[in-house]
Simulated assay, not measured.
Amino acid sequence: MAKKSVIARQKKREATVAKFAEKRAALKEAGDYAALSQLPRNASPVRLKNRCQLTGRPKGYMRYFGLGRVMFRDMALAGKIPGVKKASW
Protein backbone atom coordinates (compact mmCIF):
# COMPACT_ATOMS: atom_id res chain seq x y z
CA MET A 1 0.00 0.00 0.00
CA ALA A 2 1.19 3.50 -0.81
CA LYS A 3 2.03 5.91 1.97
CA LYS A 4 -0.92 7.83 3.37
CA SER A 5 0.80 11.12 2.58
CA VAL A 6 1.14 10.23 -1.11
CA ILE A 7 -2.54 9.26 -1.32
CA ALA A 8 -3.54 12.49 0.47
CA ARG A 9 -1.36 14.55 -1.88
CA GLN A 10 -3.06 12.94 -4.89
CA LYS A 11 -6.53 13.68 -3.48
CA LYS A 12 -5.51 17.29 -2.89
CA ARG A 13 -4.31 17.57 -6.50
CA GLU A 14 -7.59 16.12 -7.77
CA ALA A 15 -9.53 18.72 -5.79
CA THR A 16 -7.33 21.53 -7.12
CA VAL A 17 -7.75 20.36 -10.72
CA ALA A 18 -11.54 20.25 -10.28
CA LYS A 19 -11.57 23.70 -8.66
CA PHE A 20 -9.65 25.43 -11.45
CA ALA A 21 -10.94 23.40 -14.44
CA GLU A 22 -13.39 26.07 -15.64
CA LYS A 23 -10.93 28.91 -15.17
CA ARG A 24 -8.16 27.01 -17.01
CA ALA A 25 -10.48 26.25 -19.92
CA ALA A 26 -11.53 29.90 -20.21
CA LEU A 27 -7.93 31.15 -20.12
CA LYS A 28 -6.83 28.60 -22.72
CA GLU A 29 -9.74 29.57 -24.96
CA ALA A 30 -8.76 33.24 -24.68
CA GLY A 31 -5.09 32.42 -25.25
CA ASP A 32 -4.05 34.24 -22.08
CA TYR A 33 -0.98 32.15 -21.25
CA ALA A 34 0.44 34.73 -18.85
CA ALA A 35 -2.61 34.42 -16.58
CA LEU A 36 -2.59 30.65 -17.09
CA SER A 37 0.93 30.46 -15.71
CA GLN A 38 -0.21 32.31 -12.57
CA LEU A 39 -2.54 29.47 -11.59
CA PRO A 40 -1.23 26.86 -9.13
CA ARG A 41 0.89 24.16 -10.74
CA ASN A 42 -1.26 21.44 -9.21
CA ALA A 43 -4.26 22.85 -11.09
CA SER A 44 -2.94 21.21 -14.26
CA PRO A 45 -4.52 17.81 -15.00
CA VAL A 46 -1.18 16.59 -16.37
CA ARG A 47 0.12 16.37 -12.81
CA LEU A 48 -2.45 13.73 -11.84
CA LYS A 49 -1.38 10.10 -11.65
CA ASN A 50 -3.72 7.14 -11.99
CA ARG A 51 -3.71 5.20 -8.72
CA CYS A 52 -5.55 2.18 -7.35
CA GLN A 53 -8.65 3.33 -5.44
CA LEU A 54 -8.06 0.83 -2.63
CA THR A 55 -4.29 0.78 -2.12
CA GLY A 56 -2.97 3.86 -3.92
CA ARG A 57 -0.55 1.75 -5.99
CA PRO A 58 0.64 3.81 -9.00
CA LYS A 59 1.88 0.98 -11.22
CA GLY A 60 -0.19 -1.76 -12.81
CA TYR A 61 -3.31 0.41 -12.89
CA MET A 62 -6.32 -0.87 -14.84
CA ARG A 63 -8.27 2.16 -16.00
CA TYR A 64 -11.56 0.37 -16.69
CA PHE A 65 -11.81 -0.88 -13.11
CA GLY A 66 -9.90 1.87 -11.28
CA LEU A 67 -7.81 -0.76 -9.50
CA GLY A 68 -4.23 -1.92 -9.44
CA ARG A 69 -3.43 -5.36 -10.83
CA VAL A 70 -2.96 -6.93 -7.39
CA MET A 71 -6.31 -5.80 -5.99
CA PHE A 72 -8.03 -6.58 -9.29
CA ARG A 73 -6.79 -10.17 -9.11
CA ASP A 74 -7.80 -10.58 -5.47
CA MET A 75 -11.27 -9.18 -6.06
CA ALA A 76 -11.79 -11.14 -9.30
CA LEU A 77 -10.83 -14.44 -7.65
CA ALA A 78 -13.14 -13.65 -4.73
CA GLY A 79 -16.01 -12.98 -7.19
CA LYS A 80 -16.41 -9.33 -6.16
CA ILE A 81 -16.18 -7.95 -9.72
CA PRO A 82 -19.27 -8.87 -11.77
CA GLY A 83 -18.63 -10.47 -15.14
CA VAL A 84 -14.97 -11.24 -14.47
CA LYS A 85 -13.78 -14.80 -14.08
CA LYS A 86 -10.49 -16.63 -14.40
CA ALA A 87 -9.74 -17.77 -17.92
CA SER A 88 -9.15 -21.44 -18.64
CA TRP A 89 -8.84 -23.25 -21.93
Rank of each mutant, 00 (worst) to 15 (best):
1 M>W: 03
2 A>V: 11
2 A>T: 12
2 A>P: 04
2 A>M: 08
2 A>S: 12
6 V>M: 12
7 I>E: 14
8 A>C: 08
9 R>C: 14
9 R>E: 15
9 R>V: 13
11 K>L: 15
11 K>V: 12
11 K>D: 15
11 K>W: 14
11 K>G: 12
12 K>V: 11
13 R>G: 05
14 E>C: 09
14 E>N: 11
16 T>G: 00
17 V>I: 03
17 V>L: 03
18 A>Y: 00
19 K>M: 03
19 K>R: 08
19 K>I: 00
20 F>C: 03
20 F>G: 01
21 A>T: 03
23 K>E: 11
23 K>V: 07
24 R>L: 00
25 A>W: 03
25 A>L: 07
27 L>R: 06
28 K>V: 08
28 K>R: 12
29 E>I: 05
29 E>M: 07
30 A>I: 11
31 G>R: 11
31 G>E: 10
32 D>N: 15
32 D>P: 10
32 D>C: 12
32 D>R: 14
32 D>H: 12
33 Y>K: 15
36 L>E: 08
37 S>N: 13
38 Q>H: 14
38 Q>D: 13
40 P>I: 08
41 R>F: 12
41 R>T: 14
42 N>P: 07
42 N>K: 12
42 N>V: 11
42 N>I: 12
43 A>R: 09
44 S>V: 05
44 S>W: 04
44 S>F: 05
44 S>T: 06
45 P>C: 06
45 P>W: 03
46 V>P: 00
46 V>L: 13
46 V>R: 14
46 V>E: 12
47 R>V: 07
49 K>T: 14
49 K>P: 03
50 N>Y: 13
51 R>V: 15
51 R>D: 11
53 Q>S: 15
53 Q>M: 15
54 L>I: 15
55 T>L: 04
55 T>E: 05
55 T>D: 06
56 G>D: 09
56 G>C: 09
57 R>S: 09
57 R>A: 13
57 R>Y: 09
57 R>F: 06
57 R>E: 13
58 P>Y: 02
59 K>W: 03
59 K>Q: 09
59 K>I: 05
60 G>I: 04
61 Y>K: 02
62 M>F: 11
62 M>N: 05
63 R>I: 05
63 R>K: 13
64 Y>L: 13
65 F>H: 11
66 G>E: 04
67 L>T: 10
69 R>L: 11
69 R>M: 12
70 V>M: 07
71 M>P: 00
73 R>G: 06
73 R>H: 09
73 R>N: 10
74 D>K: 02
74 D>T: 02
74 D>I: 01
76 A>T: 02
77 L>T: 01
77 L>R: 01
77 L>Y: 01
78 A>R: 04
78 A>Y: 00
78 A>F: 01
79 G>Q: 02
79 G>Y: 00
80 K>C: 00
81 I>P: 03
82 P>N: 02
83 G>S: 04
85 K>V: 06
86 K>G: 02
86 K>Y: 04
86 K>T: 06
87 A>I: 11
88 S>W: 12
89 W>T: 13
89 W>R: 15
